[in-house]
Design a protein around this nucleic acid. Structure first.
Lengths: 107, 107
DNA sequence: AGTTTACATAGCTCTACAGCTATGTATAGA
DNA sequence: TCTATACATAGCTGTAGAGCTATGTAAACT
């Protein structure tokens, strides 16, 4: 039974799938057709990726007639942020190459 | 040519490899032997994973006699943090399920 | 009812890669 | 120098999964 980090990393590791998620983040809700038009892969492949993103909790779907609208669920990224913070935390007292990183995280 | 995000996500997607990186973050510098003893896979596999982590910039190696000491390079996680922040940014004006996330990121 | 459109599912192939064992290389010790 | 130790590399096998085409399902339109 893979943990939350596992699912997130594995889901986002595929470039095509990550690109779909990024588009949904940037441009908001999109239909499968609209996503397919720019994805560079076939419609079944897009549907499959969206299914995997949905399983990971990264997207929601909304049915409207025969269209399905997908949208990103940003909250699902929380475990990833936590993991990064945790790794950074372990290191906090060791090096200072991480100052850059912490500056980024704290904005 | 895969970009930095691609390399990071793909590198961290493997559980065995991510576990190695996590141990190096938690416990600091370790030899290949010490890592192998707890990894649950053979020594060549550990060496291979460490090589991949090194290529991704996530670890450094230091040779001392016939031992090789590996240590985590936290700075390499920066692109991942930036990516997450970017995705969050795109959404900032859309939903507020992300308030949780931003709270975490800003500490 | 029949057709078209939108998406999902099924079934296949092919490649990437994680794991193994065996071997190579280099350092430490006898 | 000969052996033992520590790690890296080579070569192989098995499997997960990303892509495809073909087909299924369901809604809109005529």
């Amino acid at each position: 039974m893979p943990d939350a980090h596992d699912v997130l990393f594995r889901t986002l590791a595929d470039p095509t799938r990550r690109a779909l998620f990024e588009r949904l983040c940037r441009e908001g809700e999109k239909t499968v057709g609209a996503l397919t038009a720019q994805a560079g892969v076939s419609q079944p492949v897009v549907s499959k990726h969206l299914g995997i993103l949905k399983q990971a909790g990264l997207v929601r779907d909304r049915h409207e007639g025969r269209q399905t609208h997908y949208s990103a669920q940003l909250g699902a990224l929380a475990p990833l942020v936590d993991w990064t913070r945790e790794m950074a935390g372990f290191w906090q007292s060791r090096f200072n190459a991480l100052e850059d990183l912490l500056k980024r995280m704290d904005q």
